Computed example of a mutant assay.
Amino acid sequence: MSRFYEIDPTPENYWRAIILFGRNTASYKFALAKALLELHGNGKSQVKLEELAVPYAKHLAQHIKQQPKQITSKRSSFLEQITAYNQGQLDHDGLIQQTTRLGFNNVIDAFHKVHGNDVGSRFFIDQRRSHGGIELTDNLNHLLEQLSAEDLAGEVEARWRLVEEAWANNLSRQLMLVEYEEHDQQLIGIHSQRRISLTSARPALNGYQKGRCFYCYREISILYGSDTPADVDHFFPHKLKRCDDGKPIDGVANLVLACTDCNRGAQGKFDQIPALPLLERLHTRNEYLISSHHPLRETLIAQTGASREKRQDYLQDAYNCATVFTGSWQKWQPRAEGVAVF
């Protein structure tokens, strides 16, 4: 089982375990997650399948327009109906009717399963037989009392984009590397010399950090315009490229989310080398992501090593190289500003 929710069994961590570690054979889980976040705002606990079908089908239709492959099997009668709607061959009422009939056959049963087992908190109860729908639980209420629905939806969207691009590029047989482009703050997939925009970097990185600064644990937000914005920070600074061109400075293994004080405040990190405990924290984060599914797992392995020992050696080598090259024998260490949640 994942340490993600063994250590801290809260609704927040169960939710993120579902999004990160739930079985990925179709994108229905992501569409249902986004639909649940939307429907919570309606103030109703009981939701008919016809009501659930509206946001659920909407999100699938939007994604199919961008990336037609939304399932690992060869075909899906349900997704064919979504495609027909996108092509103007099915009206909205017909879409909702077909979604109600075909769209929930598996996802409602499978949503709460991680590694084959049900997680400890359910965000809805299946009432299809008794009431023709689902009942939203207090766990969903507790989740959204603690976290922004927009932040959570952004994390779901980021994960969805990564997974669908992995399917589209047959990542079981071919590798896509994921790197960061700073000018537009996007994660870019590099596959067969093609560069594919995957997702905004902030929500893609936020699932592990749970809305906290990587360095000081202060609360941060991935929403633009927030009072506590999250910066995408390079753990090892760009100048390390001059030490070793082989180091993927813009790779996922070297990216974290930081509060503005830690990244660029008066006592911020800037181009300093973080202290050794923070390097250990980065290694733990990367190992956590490797236990997830494609494509971040494959990217991290390709960039840092095929075994835990090799990945640890890789980071130690980068740390030593950065220390010698920059002369930074005095390392940077922030003051803790929040609860250590990872």
Rank of each mutant, 00 (worst) to 15 (best):
H59P: 01
D138Y: 14
D91E: 07
Q97A: 15
H293V: 14
L205A: 00
R218H: 07
A53R: 12
H59R: 15
A61I: 03
I188W: 03
V107D: 06
T284N: 05
R285Y: 01
Q303I: 10
L240Q: 01
A84D: 11
Y85P: 03
I249W: 00
N105F: 14
K34H: 04
P68A: 15
T199F: 00
E287V: 06
R75S: 15
P295R: 03
E12W: 09
A230R: 13
V163T: 10
L136A: 09
S328I: 04
D93S: 13
L205G: 00
D261C: 07
S292N: 13
D313A: 12
V339F: 10
R16Q: 03
T10Q: 08
C213F: 00
E219T: 01
Q87L: 13
S291L: 12
C213A: 01
R264S: 04
H283D: 07
A153E: 08
V163Y: 13
H115I: 13
A275T: 09
A340K: 07
A318D: 00
L276E: 08
S76G: 09
Q193N: 12
T323H: 08
V252W: 01
R242Y: 01
L223H: 15
Q193H: 11
D227R: 13
A35C: 10
H59E: 09
V119I: 12
P274V: 04
D8T: 03
H115S: 13
Q97P: 06
S226H: 14
L39I: 05
L20W: 12
D151T: 08
L49P: 15
Q186M: 14
Q87E: 11
A61R: 11
D93F: 06
R202M: 04
L95E: 09
E164Q: 06
N254C: 01
D138A: 11
D313Q: 09
G338Y: 05
P9C: 06
H112P: 11
Q267E: 06
N169L: 05
D245L: 10
C213G: 02
L240A: 05
G251P: 03
A168S: 12
G246K: 14
L52H: 10
V232A: 07
C321A: 10
A84Y: 05
G251D: 02
S292I: 14
E179A: 06
D138I: 12
E181Y: 03
L20V: 13
S197R: 07
K269L: 02
H40D: 10
L276M: 09
F104C: 11
R311T: 08
G211C: 00
S292F: 12
A53H: 12
G338M: 03
S328G: 07
A266R: 15
S172V: 14
K247V: 15
L37A: 08
V156W: 11
F235G: 00
D233T: 00
S130F: 15
S328F: 13
L198C: 04
E80W: 13
D261S: 11
E50W: 15
K74F: 15
M176N: 05
K241L: 08
T83M: 14
S192P: 04
H234E: 03
E135L: 11
L276F: 11
F124V: 09
V252F: 09
G225Y: 11
